[in-house]
Computed example of a mutant assay.
Amino acid sequence: MSFKDYIRVIPDFPQPGISFKDITTLLNDGDKYRQAIDELKKMVAHMKIDLIAGPEARGFVVGAPLAYALGVGFVPIRKSGKLPSDTIEIEYDLEYGKDRLAMHSDAIKPGQNVLIADDLLATGGTISTSVQLVKQLGGNIAGAAFLIELADLNGRAKLPGVDIVSLVTY
């Protein structure tokens, strides 16, 4: 069976015309979840990685176990106001409005190689903002890893020069 068999597709969520890819059914199966992380580990083996950064919330469930599997640290990227120490923040556009992502200002040392990990690459807004945060602290982008990529939304276009791997593509 493919990993797609473990991803539930929910039509018209969160609004009409959207085909939501629900990874909770993959996460609920311990064996398949482990296999997915192990496969991503193989897919990024060619990259030099010192840290993994993941945007909340699903970037945590991909990035943290991948960091553990690779034996590297994990850096959470959070919504504004959620981190307890000094932060840097960047505002980015949503489909209907704006949001802000933040990272601790001491989370990355200049020159560290950082892999961005998340559940989904769609339009690329969240990930390109995550890349900007890493670069603002002097980190190098080692690449980006996703469980799912929605190819028709062309998120790769917002990540020029970034080595991107995706477990499943729709």
Score class of each variant (00 low, 15 high):
residue 2 S to K: 15
residue 3 F to Y: 12
residue 4 K to L: 13
residue 4 K to A: 12
residue 5 D to P: 03
residue 6 Y to R: 04
residue 6 Y to I: 03
residue 6 Y to S: 07
residue 7 I to W: 00
residue 7 I to K: 00
residue 8 R to F: 12
residue 10 I to F: 10
residue 11 P to C: 08
residue 12 D to W: 10
residue 12 D to F: 10
residue 13 F to R: 06
residue 13 F to V: 05
residue 15 Q to M: 15
residue 15 Q to G: 11
residue 17 G to Y: 05
residue 17 G to M: 08
residue 18 I to D: 08
residue 22 D to N: 12
residue 28 N to R: 14
residue 31 D to F: 14
residue 33 Y to V: 07
residue 33 Y to Q: 09
residue 33 Y to C: 12
residue 35 Q to S: 12
residue 35 Q to R: 13
residue 41 K to E: 13
residue 42 K to E: 15
residue 42 K to W: 07
residue 43 M to Y: 02
residue 43 M to A: 09
residue 45 A to Y: 13
residue 46 H to M: 12
residue 46 H to G: 14
residue 48 K to D: 15
residue 49 I to L: 06
residue 50 D to R: 08
residue 52 I to F: 05
residue 56 E to D: 13
residue 57 A to P: 07
residue 61 V to W: 01
residue 62 V to S: 03
residue 63 G to M: 04
residue 63 G to I: 01
residue 64 A to Q: 11
residue 66 L to A: 02
residue 66 L to V: 05
residue 68 Y to E: 08
residue 69 A to I: 07
residue 70 L to S: 06
residue 71 G to H: 13
residue 71 G to E: 11
residue 72 V to T: 10
residue 75 V to C: 04
residue 76 P to G: 07
residue 78 R to G: 05
residue 78 R to T: 05
residue 79 K to C: 09
residue 83 L to Y: 11
residue 84 P to V: 09
residue 86 D to Q: 15
residue 86 D to T: 13
residue 86 D to C: 10
residue 88 I to Y: 06
residue 89 E to V: 12
residue 90 I to T: 11
residue 92 Y to R: 04
residue 93 D to S: 13
residue 93 D to W: 03
residue 95 E to S: 11
residue 96 Y to V: 07
residue 98 K to R: 15
residue 98 K to L: 11
residue 100 R to M: 15
residue 101 L to P: 01
residue 102 A to F: 03
residue 103 M to H: 04
residue 105 S to K: 15
residue 106 D to G: 06
residue 107 A to E: 01
residue 108 I to S: 01
residue 108 I to A: 02
residue 111 G to M: 09
residue 111 G to H: 06
residue 113 N to C: 15
residue 114 V to L: 06
residue 114 V to T: 06
residue 115 L to R: 04
residue 116 I to V: 12
residue 117 A to N: 03
residue 118 D to W: 04
residue 118 D to V: 05
residue 120 L to W: 01
residue 121 L to S: 00
residue 121 L to A: 01
residue 121 L to E: 00
residue 122 A to T: 04
residue 123 T to K: 08
residue 128 S to M: 08
residue 128 S to T: 12
residue 130 S to Q: 06
residue 132 Q to E: 14
residue 133 L to S: 02
residue 134 V to A: 03
residue 134 V to F: 02
residue 135 K to Y: 09
residue 136 Q to Y: 07
residue 136 Q to H: 13
residue 139 G to R: 00
residue 140 N to A: 10
residue 142 A to C: 07
residue 142 A to Y: 00
residue 143 G to V: 03
residue 143 G to R: 02
residue 144 A to F: 04
residue 147 L to A: 05
residue 148 I to C: 01
residue 149 E to G: 03
residue 150 L to T: 07
residue 152 D to F: 14
residue 157 A to I: 12
residue 160 P to T: 10
residue 160 P to Q: 09
residue 161 G to N: 09
residue 162 V to S: 02
residue 165 V to T: 11
residue 165 V to R: 09
residue 166 S to K: 05
